[in-house]
Design a protein around this nucleic acid. Sequence first.
DNA 1: CGAACAGTTGAAGAAGGTCAAACAGCGTGG
DNA 2: CCACGCTGTTTGACCTTCTTCAACTGTTCG
Lengths: 251, 251
Amino acid sequence: MAESPLLDIARLRKSCAQCSLQQLCLPAGIGGEDLERLDALVKKRRPLERGDRLFRSGTGLSALFVAREGSFKTVAMNEDGDEQIIGFHLPGELIGLDALGSGTHRCDAEALEGAEVCEIPMWDLERVAAQIPGLQHQLLRIIGKNMELDQDHLTMLGRRHANERVLLFIHGLSERLQTLGRAHLQFSLPMSREEIASYLGLVIETVSRSFTKLQDDGLISIRGRQLKILDHRKLVEAAHSPELVRAAGRG
Amino acid sequence: MAESPLLDIARLRKSCAQCSLQQLCLPAGIGGEDLERLDALVKKRRPLERGDRLFRSGTGLSALFVAREGSFKTVAMNEDGDEQIIGFHLPGELIGLDALGSGTHRCDAEALEGAEVCEIPMWDLERVAAQIPGLQHQLLRIIGKNMELDQDHLTMLGRRHANERVLLFIHGLSERLQTLGRAHLQFSLPMSREEIASYLGLVIETVSRSFTKLQDDGLISIRGRQLKILDHRKLVEAAHSPELVRAAGRG
DNA sequence: CGAACAGTTGAAGAAGGTCAAACAGCGTGG
DNA sequence: CCACGCTGTTTGACCTTCTTCAACTGTTCG
């Protein structure tokens, strides 16, 4: 038992159980020294406050972050100065891949609420990934999973009716919360209406109206940021068929 | 000349000069045996015809593709059956990363015209990437570059005015063609209006009207699929400031 | 208590969607 | 070579939806 890291693994399993990076180590058949080496990379950072930034656009990529507690948004700025939210990052999700292509961040990452992050220095991660068999593959999968989130966002924005976008947004959030092991039928939105609007390519008033309409239709209940999904089945159906959404609006 | 691959490198440099994967090997300080090993992976596939598919949604990830000649689209299908184009892939660009997360493709990849592709078996690529120093890093960069394209798409869809989306679309296409070493001020659109509409979350008539408006404003000249950018400066400006777009419409 | 902020609601207008028709390009077959 | 029909694109008129502007409500926090 001279170097058995059993206790360490148990601790890690617990602290990282719902982390999107858990697949980076735990199920990849990595153990012992390798696991310790990986664990040594991860720095736990001080708590962050609402509005604090992990990085800014134009900054070089130094590390990837995982939201451990609290949620984040990534915001891109156009030439003309108006911002667009291009991603929300829930607790357990990854932040910082936007700089993978050029080595420079293309957006700001900002805490939506009190938060805490793990930080993985990119340079070290790449080095270790090249050495530990299986880790590179897991890294690619995690990156791929993140691309899927972007594509889901894309399909929301491709919808031409505001109600559909909002519906898909709620549904998507709920699914993500579920896979992260959190309550997914009743939860608190970490972002403002304004931020949702930006994310969905809408205007704040339209988002507000959509919410109240969904509430009137009995699909959800929403009071401020407290959201409850009342009829999950109907919500999923409605998200995938515009007719239902519109028909309900006339009732 | 027992093991000098000079001629091979020269040939590769030429044939892959504008390929998005060129960074995978050429500038990464890879040479000799390694380069040959990498080159051996790449299969050149038979010519494809318009409508031919590289893969279908639900299929397992077996290879990445690079369009050598001709363009492609990737199409996602919703539960309710309507399609959405989530990406265009110009000659030299990469196709197939959508399956990176789950190992299963989430969309169809279809040739927009006569085409030819290089095929890189994913499994082999990963294996070699783990062995050749620098290659893993280049692979991550290439994946990152592709994510940037998705994010550009996202920022188009986030714009609330049809004219802005179309403007950003044209501008983006032009930029991509330029980096791929092709004519970027006068070119032929490989996709139909219908496909542009789907990509931009608009309806075909709106796309058509936007094009004619941009033509009336003297920014472009468009006849069928033949597009000429007349005032590149003004086009870039207009793409980043809604007021200009709208003001011009009243003139 | 009241200022500041977030969210909701209402009424008006503009933008884009819908429906329908005309038009252009192109390959086929007479 | 031309007529024909197919398909993709443009254009027009109308209608729905979203945005805009504005007022109002509600909550939080000095």
